[in-house]
Simulated scan of single mutants.
Amino acid sequence: MKQTTIFKRVEAIGIGLHKGEPIKLVLEPLDADMGIVFVRTDLGISFKAEPKNVINTQMATVVGNQNGFVSTIEHLLSAINAYGIDNVRILLDANEVPVMDGSAISFCMLLDEAGIRLLDAPKKVILVRKEVEVKQGDKFVKISPSNNPKFDYTINFTHPVIGKQRYVFEFSKSNFIKEIARARTFGFLKDLQKLQAQNLALGASLDNAVALDDTHILNPEGLRFENEFVRHKILDAIGDLSLMGAPLMGDYTAFAGSHELNHKLTLAILADAKNYEVATLSGELLKEYGKVFA
């Protein structure tokens, strides 16, 4: 199996979640072994999407350096990961990826428009060889060896609408589009008011998030899935793990995970060469994992 990039340049404009201003997003093809590269066109700087470039995980996953950064990258990266795209240049004229409708479906549509092109280089995957777990109190995320990658996620909120939810997602592009891509980010009205007092979440609205007060969902259309909340957490995790630099072939399990724990998991995996193996997707490995990219 070969590495991929997008077939043609595509662009979109959307609102930034935190600044509330229009942002231009452009995706461009990139050569083999270049990975996913963010470019701040307004600053003339770029940085690769990889764990060492993650500088913040408090509100979203943020990559950058002392000269600039890009925030809220996880939804776009989730779609790129699910589509099996290995190399792409992401150009932005602001410090965050536009939130679109709060899910990944708009990015899927953009990738459908761009198309996928095969490159003359073998596709690489990261095979999980040992279980790796990161804990924080009763919260945890872990990865374990598997030839049929899955995301098994549990959340537990005291909010009456959410409560305890669990979803097991068998990873593939087609399953992602059907089961995960449309799940929106969510937030609580009491938190939004605090954030906006700090000039954050200025672009948040019922058009790009599921909003909840103390007892109800505020969106008049309701939910897209009965368990949309946990599905969105899986969407986030897929995007966060894409920072590994190649598709991660293992089972991901989480209880009350977060961007912070996902980032720590990527660092923990990379900290010991016995935890993983970077392999070419061919021969027997292609038979085992090829369906993931179908």
Score class of each variant (00 low, 15 high):
Val26His: 03
Ile180Asp: 00
Gly102Ser: 08
Ala211Trp: 03
Arg224Cys: 09
Phe176Arg: 00
Phe151Gln: 03
Asn208Val: 05
Ala197Phe: 07
Ala279Arg: 09
Ile55Gly: 02
Met1Pro: 11
Ser282Leu: 14
Gln66Ser: 15
Lys123Pro: 08
Ser103Arg: 00
Asn65Cys: 12
Ala181Cys: 11
Asp42Arg: 01
Glu113Trp: 00
Glu284Thr: 08
Phe107Ile: 07
Glu277Met: 14
Leu261Phe: 07
Pro29Arg: 06
Asn199Thr: 07
Thr72Gly: 04
Ile45Cys: 10
Val26Arg: 02
Thr154Cys: 12
Lys291Pro: 08
Gln165Glu: 13
Glu21Asp: 12
Met100Gly: 00
Leu118Asn: 15
Glu96Arg: 03
Val37Tyr: 14
Ser174Asp: 14
Leu30Ile: 05
Phe293Lys: 07
Ala211Asp: 05
Asp152Pro: 07
Leu248Ala: 05
Thr61His: 07
Ala32Gly: 15
Asn81Val: 02
Phe255Cys: 11
Phe255Leu: 14
Arg89Ile: 11
Asn56Glu: 14
Gln3Asn: 14
Asn53Gln: 06
Lys150Glu: 11
Ile85Leu: 04
Val97Asn: 01
Ala60Arg: 01
Leu281Phe: 13
Leu91Asp: 04
Ile15Thr: 04
Gly283Cys: 12
Glu28His: 09
Phe188Lys: 07
Glu226Ser: 14
Ile269Gly: 00
Asp214Trp: 08
Ile143Asn: 03
Asn208Gly: 10
Gly290Phe: 10
Tyr83Trp: 10
Val62Phe: 01
Leu76Trp: 01
Lys123Gln: 13
Leu206Ser: 13
His259Thr: 09
Phe186Trp: 04
Ala268Glu: 14
Thr185Tyr: 02
Pro122Asn: 13
Gly250Phe: 01
Leu267Trp: 08
Asn95His: 14
Val128Cys: 09
Val134Arg: 02
Leu43Glu: 08
Asn148Asp: 15
Ala268Val: 08
Gly203Phe: 00
Thr154Trp: 08
Phe140Tyr: 15
Ile105Gly: 03
Ile45Trp: 01
Met59Val: 09
Gly222His: 08
Thr185Glu: 01
Phe69Asp: 04
Ala294Tyr: 15
Thr266Lys: 08
Asn262Ser: 11
Val292Tyr: 01
Lys124Ala: 12
Asn65Gln: 09
Leu43Gln: 10
Ile143Leu: 11
Glu260Ser: 12
Ala254Asn: 08
Asn147Ala: 13
Ile13Cys: 11
Lys178Val: 03
Phe169Tyr: 12
Asp86Ala: 10
Val168Ile: 11
